[in-house]
Computed example of a mutant assay.
Amino acid sequence: MIYAPTGGIVAAPTTSLPELIGGNRNYDYRLTWLRDAATTLAALLGAGYREEAEAWRRWLLRAVAGDPENLQILYGITGERDHPERVLTWLPGYEGSTPVRIGNAAAKQVQLDVYGEVIDTLYLAHEGGVAHCADTAALHQRLIRHLVQRWREPDEGIWEIRGPRRHFVHSKVMAWVAVDRTIRLAEAGALDVDLFELIELRDAIHNEVCTKGFDPVRNTFTQSYGSSELDAALLLIPLVGFLPPSDPRVIGTMEAILRELSTPDGLVFRYKTAGDRIGLDGFAGDEGVFLLCSFWLVDNLALAGRLSEARALFERLLALRNDLGLLAEEYDPGQKRQLGNFPQAFSHMALMQTALLLQRLSGLAEPNGSPTPAMPGPTSSPVQAATLAAPTRV
């Protein structure tokens, strides 16, 4: 899934494999999403794949550096910017699932969380020993300046909704991540920025999210400001270090997602769909459970000290792989089959990071099998820390 000549990473090598058989949530994933590629690189770095990280950084510079103020969320594997979405009406689709699309209209969306994923990966590359690059530092500075100006805007969010823009909590959290990782690099002497301004901004974003994005009555963060909806992307709040895993608001959010977005087996839906009605994402129809989100739940359970539950869910997820050990984007618990484009980079990235986290936490366990009391604090990123603690590949 890495295009060797440029280092670009595709989200999946297929198009229009449906997220529900017979449904219309069928998209072209044969492109390089900054979010998918960045988080995949974070997992690869944890396994010692530094050459791939350096190649991706070169791809990023070619694709973005000329125009970072107009950052797209996806590009072609050689950095192409133009990917108009078209429907191939003469094709019947996989098992009658239409439409068949090529290109992806999400290229024109505003997704502010992408700044967080990209900057976090640049930070991890630095921490993982990838050599300093002056061009990358210059790009980083321009990206953070642009985010400072735009972080208060609504956007389409991580799930690329095709309805009205909202103030998605996940997007604001990832804006916080972008600022936080920039501060860390500056404090390490690897980046020249105005630290005082960024520290104030980091606190401002944090306070706004905890005020506007949290429902104190239900004790859970919500999908967007003023909304009562849940979103599985909220499971990332402790994983990126926004709040510690033991925080009551984090525990409450995890419990709400277990109640309202999970199957009895712990497999997680992204958010509630609306059946035959048009939902908040701009589409009617349902979809399968999202494997990426299900791995995030494993991480949350593990960091909350519920290691036996986390391992049991992890084993259930591993059992969903095909005979080659590969995963698609989603899974249909009723029909017991994989759904969506295949294989999916996000799913395998999550599998790798969850495995590394469970390995790390198992090493921290007391002889009786219970986790040690010391848990990562609010300024650490436990999943990333587990990634970086992994041995280098030889």
Results as ranks from 00 to 15, higher is better:
residue 138 A to Q: 13
residue 137 A to D: 15
residue 159 W to M: 03
residue 156 E to Y: 15
residue 127 E to W: 08
residue 210 C to M: 12
residue 221 F to S: 07
residue 136 T to N: 00
residue 164 P to V: 08
residue 213 G to S: 04
residue 122 L to I: 15
residue 232 A to V: 05
residue 180 D to T: 07
residue 181 R to H: 09
residue 188 A to P: 01
residue 231 D to T: 10
residue 211 T to P: 03
residue 221 F to W: 14
residue 156 E to K: 07
residue 194 D to G: 06
residue 172 K to N: 00
residue 238 P to A: 04
residue 210 C to F: 04
residue 202 R to D: 04
residue 257 I to K: 01
residue 227 S to V: 02
residue 134 A to S: 15
residue 194 D to L: 04
residue 256 A to E: 05
residue 133 C to N: 15
residue 148 V to C: 12
residue 155 D to S: 13
residue 238 P to E: 01
residue 140 H to K: 04
residue 174 M to C: 08
residue 234 L to H: 04
residue 238 P to C: 10
residue 133 C to A: 11
residue 130 V to Q: 07
residue 201 L to C: 08
residue 248 P to A: 11
residue 203 D to N: 13
residue 245 P to Y: 13
residue 229 E to M: 02
residue 207 N to V: 07
residue 155 D to Y: 02
residue 163 G to Q: 02
residue 141 Q to I: 04
residue 243 L to Q: 14
residue 199 I to A: 11
residue 194 D to K: 00
residue 203 D to L: 14
residue 257 I to M: 06
residue 195 L to A: 10
residue 165 R to V: 10
residue 187 E to K: 12
residue 239 L to C: 08
residue 156 E to D: 12
residue 123 Y to T: 03
residue 145 R to C: 02
residue 135 D to W: 13
residue 136 T to F: 03
residue 192 D to V: 03
residue 152 R to S: 10
residue 213 G to F: 11
residue 207 N to F: 08
residue 227 S to W: 12
residue 222 T to Q: 14
residue 226 G to C: 07
residue 142 R to I: 03
residue 241 G to S: 09
residue 163 G to N: 10
residue 192 D to I: 02
residue 181 R to G: 02
residue 147 L to D: 03
residue 226 G to L: 10
residue 239 L to D: 11
residue 180 D to N: 13
residue 174 M to H: 07
residue 256 A to V: 00
residue 209 V to A: 00
residue 238 P to N: 01
residue 145 R to I: 05
residue 206 H to V: 05
residue 221 F to N: 05
residue 157 G to L: 13
residue 211 T to I: 01
residue 221 F to Q: 07
residue 197 E to L: 14
residue 230 L to N: 07
residue 223 Q to N: 11
residue 168 F to I: 04
residue 186 A to Q: 00
residue 212 K to W: 05
residue 179 V to R: 01
residue 200 E to N: 14
residue 206 H to F: 15
residue 207 N to Y: 12
residue 203 D to S: 10
residue 209 V to I: 08
residue 202 R to L: 06
residue 182 T to N: 05
residue 247 D to N: 04
residue 169 V to F: 08
residue 161 I to T: 12
residue 201 L to N: 08
residue 190 A to H: 14
residue 227 S to G: 05
residue 199 I to T: 10
residue 134 A to T: 12
residue 215 D to A: 09
residue 216 P to R: 08
residue 242 F to L: 07
residue 238 P to G: 05
residue 144 I to S: 01
residue 186 A to E: 03
residue 226 G to Q: 06
residue 235 L to F: 11
residue 137 A to I: 07
residue 234 L to W: 07
residue 160 E to N: 09
residue 244 P to V: 00
residue 238 P to Q: 05
residue 184 R to K: 15
